[in-house]
Design a protein around this nucleic acid. Structure first.
Lengths: 219, 219, 219, 219
DNA sequence: AATGAATGAGGTTTCATTCAT
DNA sequence: GATGAATGAAACCTCATTCAT
């Protein structure tokens, strides 16, 4: 927010700098409340330059969002891919998620801003990232199911619903954690895992005696 | 939305009618997208009258929200209070929640509008209702815990976090359900219950062998 | 342009007054060069009021134009209808045309403004009025032709072309006359009539040997 | 419009190339709708270079216009000069005019653009070319008059008015022809000639009984 | 000979809100 | 108890034009 130096920057540098500044502002106050004038002033240039580089407000926001979104999706993607055992994908994904919002809480805020205009391109892009997260959860749940079940249409619908609920839980908890901060990100992750993992597991393996998968080995 | 009759109404009736109309509009398109002009036109009165009654847009929205919020809290409250066994409070609450949004999706929409201005009084009131819901979940979780645990500060924090996650899950699933509608409200409720109940239970009774509480193993 | 009194006016009066003022400004400097700010200032109100009444700049311009266009078309229409003999329709129409632009030169300017945006609704409306004028000329020419010729497609095309030329001549002469003013409107009308009437007549009565009018006198 | 090669050109060549490109754009969309950005992009150079060469947008337009204007005036001038008999000057001029706009419709479009700013230098230059055309018509009309009449101030005014009307007719018909194209340029020329020539002739030779030119009543 | 970076100034439009009756 | 008229403030966006290299 500190107004940067007055030197002429290369197009690339200026764009980078603008993205940084805009990202901060958007993260702090949301899409609707931030004006182009403000962004320009914060960057230390005039509006036309920003319009020249980014076209319009929505596109600028999308550019901000893309950095965050890509980073988040990649972080989770890597974590999940590294799981030796598919049954650990979910946990690893959740941990990556909280680790991400711990590292870059602004990214999170931009990605899940609640003041976005309802009917534009921005919302489409946000939806894309949300759907990516959804897919991670859904995939990790499905991967633990018998092949037969995975085919069923109704099972797939249920899994989508459950995944939605889990993402909602993660978002809410993320928000809560960002606001309060009375525990570490990793603790928050474990808390979420312990809350939903049992239910997911039960759903994935309906035939398996739940007792066995869930915990205490039989005496 | 049908423009109401133009007869002169008493102040109270007019307010009631305005609330109805405004509620519909807000539910349909969100706080930000609805203008005072529209509301006045839909009600069939002039803007100054609405300002006279409600002061400003935020207050009007709050008035709309309060009806919905109170109704929701009361519905859940009743359901929970009726539970013979505290261990059923959570399930009953969730069912009441989905039943409520099934009956009155407009109320839900107003209560969980995502286009609210970030830093105003509105958001405070929304928070109040959210915190009420939170308390239900937290209470139902705590009630299943041994008294000793309930005293612990760290346990209370954990429970708050978990309850937040659960409410987030419910909201997200509610939104998903309203948008798609590929199952009944009651199915959605069961889905949510089956997803988080095991985890909650495990948390409430950490000593109890989880297997036992979770769906009797085959003999 | 003198800023009118500050009294509150009825909607109708204010609209009327706004139309008057805007009409003057548009007539004087053209659509593009007049700003809404200016209009509002000249009327003595603020922009939002004007937007409230007229919607946007194009609509305001159209409202201005409609008055002028309707008046012009009606004036010509009446003059032509009054012609006892169809062979006089053209002359009467031309006189009405010049009489009109004599009475209300601003109307003319608004109607044939050359700075209108190319692809909007405004241009459509202007075209409508232009086509009305065209029809007058074309009709008066056709009415003097034998029924047989009137059917011919090629004759109709020719008549359209000629009518276009005549309207162009009238517009240009109108503009010239408005700029210079070295003769009366009625003299200008007669001048135009004497310039094109012979040609039109010759066209209408193709049986007359064209050789006589058109070129080399017979040896 | 095809973006030209990026080789370094001499100043003169670059100017030439810029004029070509700008001319095309202006002809296609009119002065107002073309931006300097566009022109620069289409030429394949940067704006400052264009400013360096031409000063500003108006001057650039004028430069475009001058080529077209000079060419048109010269074409007509030649045609008229070639007329053995002064009585044919008008016809030849009209034919040259339509032949010109047939060959180079872009030139025409730039010369008679209707979106030019009202009060600048551009309009002055346009007026110059228009006055040149006017002079051709006026001269050809005057040349057929007795010397005595030519001296009269009022006759000269009348001739100017009539010439204005004729040019207006030519412009309008030119526009119509360019838009529709349902006849050849030469047919259009003859049509215009046959429409105004009789009137002009009658004016030039006021002693000739007009009845003759105007369609003899059947004996 | 030419460029990339940058701007000043202004345009249309929208909205919550209040004045005067 | 209610209205029609009116506003202040600001938002997004565009364009011709120039500076510094």
């Amino acid at each position: 927010m500190a107004s940067p130096s007055r030197t002429r920057l290369s197009r690339e540098d200026r764009m980078e700098q603008t993205l940084d500044t805009a990202h901060s502002l958007f993260a702090e106050r949301g899409y609707a409340a931030v004006t182009m004038d403000e962004i320009a002033a914060a960057v230390g240039v005039t509006k036309p330059l920003i319009y020249n580089y980014f076209g319009n407000k929505e596109s600028l926001y999308i550019a901000c969002m893309e950095r965050s979104g890509d980073a988040l999706v990649e972080a989770i993607s890597l974590a999940v891919a590294d799981a030796a055992d598919p049954s650990q994908a979910f946990e690893r994904g959740v941990r990556a998620f909280f680790s991400f919002i711990d590292t870059d809480r602004a990214a999170w805020a931009v990605l899940f801003d609640e003041t976005l205009p309802h009917g534009g391109e921005v919302i489409e892009r946000v939806s894309y990232y949300r759907s990516q997260l959804l897919d991670f959860v859904a995939a990790s749940t499905l991967s633990r199911m018998p092949a037969k079940a995975r085919q069923s249409e109704s099972v797939r619908t249920e899994v989508e619903a459950v995944a939605t609920a889990v993402i909602g839980a993660a978002e809410a908890m993320g928000r809560w954690w960002l606001a309060g901060g009375s525990m570490t990100a990793s603790e928050a992750a474990e808390l979420l895992i312990s809350t939903v993992e049992p239910g997911l597991l039960a759903r994935s393996a309906p035939n398996t005696p739940k007792a066995v998968t869930e915990g205490d080995p039989p005496a």
